[in-house]
């Protein structure tokens, strides 16, 4: 579709596009993937340590230890975001810092910090879930769809 659009452009614009394509810096995809893998993996590794800690020293089973682990990770992200470490990490980690639950925490907390000057209700209250809102909406929606499919399959499909 993009190619069709390009053909309709005037020749000057096409020449400019060609020049831009040549000069444009290529995205280091492999490096980005590597960094995302390493950083994301490290965050999950820390999460696993926290989970093991909860299983060993608190009355949580493997089933239930996930909740306090998530809460702890989000709390740690809150501190890291507040002190400005998390955005520095995000600069080179990319998706590695955005995909785990810490990325969700960061999206909520950074928005809250950013809009603090506009007041606690109109500023923080309305803007806090600006970035994280879609995650919640589509997370709940897709969970509903999956649950619906599972219910249909197990109840009427005899699986």
């Amino acid at each position: 579709m993009a190619d069709e659009k390009k053909k309709k452009l005037p020749p000057k614009a096409q020449a400019y596009q060609a020049l831009q394509d040549k000069k444009e810096e290529k995205r280091p995809i492999v490096k980005n993937c590597m960094m995302a893998f390493l950083v994301g993996g490290t965050i999950c590794f820390i999460g696993q340590i926290i989970m093991t800690f909860y299983i060993h020293f608190f009355p949580f089973t493997e089933q239930t230890a996930g909740n306090p682990t998530t809460a702890t990770l989000i709390f740690l992200t809150m501190l890291a975001t507040g002190f400005g470490y998390y955005d520095r990490l995000g600069q080179f980690a990319g998706a590695g810092s955005a995909v785990p639950v810490t990325g969700f925490g960061n999206a909520v907390i950074s928005a809250a910090i950013e809009h603090r000057t506009e007041g606690y209700i109109i500023g923080v209250g309305t803007n806090m879930f600006k970035v994280a809102g879609p995650v919640i909406v589509y997370g709940v929606f897709s969970a509903f769809i999956v649950a619906l499919i599972k219910t249909i399959l197990t109840q009427w499909g005899g699986m």
């Binding site: 390493l38 950083v39 490290t42 590794f45």
Partner: peptide
Amino acid sequence: FFQKFFLFFSLAIVC
């Protein structure tokens, strides 16, 4: 320094 340290640390864990 932070990035270098992090890269080294992560690679060590992966290995």
